[in-house]
Amino acid sequence: MGTPTPTRAAESASVADRELARSLFVSEATVKSHLSHIYTKLEVDTRAAAVARAIEQRIIRPPG
């Protein structure tokens, strides 16, 4: 499988945004807007960093 390239990561995020929007009955733009605000509040640039920061700040629990 290998290490994801930036292009693959972007494609995966796009698919995830689309699926999340569909499941929440909102537009993909709404999902992206909310993610942008979350990233700003957590002072991060990526989903992975947002999850890590949220765990550090005990906003969410780690899996397992």
Rank of each mutant, 00 (worst) to 15 (best):
M1V: 07
M1K: 09
G2K: 07
G2L: 08
G2N: 04
T3L: 10
T3P: 00
P4E: 03
P4S: 06
T5Q: 04
T5E: 01
P6I: 08
T7Y: 06
T7H: 04
T7S: 11
R8L: 15
A9H: 05
A9D: 09
A9S: 15
E11F: 08
E11P: 02
E11D: 08
S12V: 14
A13M: 14
S14A: 15
S14I: 06
S14T: 08
V15H: 07
V15E: 03
A16Q: 07
A16C: 07
D17H: 13
D17N: 12
R18H: 12
E19W: 10
L20K: 00
A21W: 02
A21F: 09
A21N: 07
A21Q: 04
R22L: 06
R22F: 11
S23Y: 05
S23K: 11
S23V: 07
F25M: 02
V26H: 04
S27C: 01
S27D: 05
E28M: 12
E28K: 10
A29F: 01
V31D: 01
K32P: 00
K32A: 12
S33G: 12
H34G: 05
L35Y: 11
L35R: 14
S36Q: 13
H37G: 15
H37M: 10
H37V: 13
I38L: 13
Y39K: 05
T40K: 13
T40Q: 14
T40F: 02
K41T: 04
L42A: 04
L42I: 12
V44Q: 05
V44G: 03
V44Y: 00
V44D: 00
R47N: 04
A49S: 08
A50H: 02
V51H: 08
V51Y: 03
V51T: 02
A52Q: 14
A52F: 02
A52P: 03
R53V: 01
R53Q: 06
R53K: 11
R53D: 00
A54F: 05
A54E: 06
I55Q: 08
Q57W: 05
R58I: 05
I59A: 14
I60N: 02
I60A: 02
R61M: 09
R61W: 00
P62R: 15
P62G: 03
P63R: 14
G64W: 04
G64I: 10
G64E: 09
G64C: 06
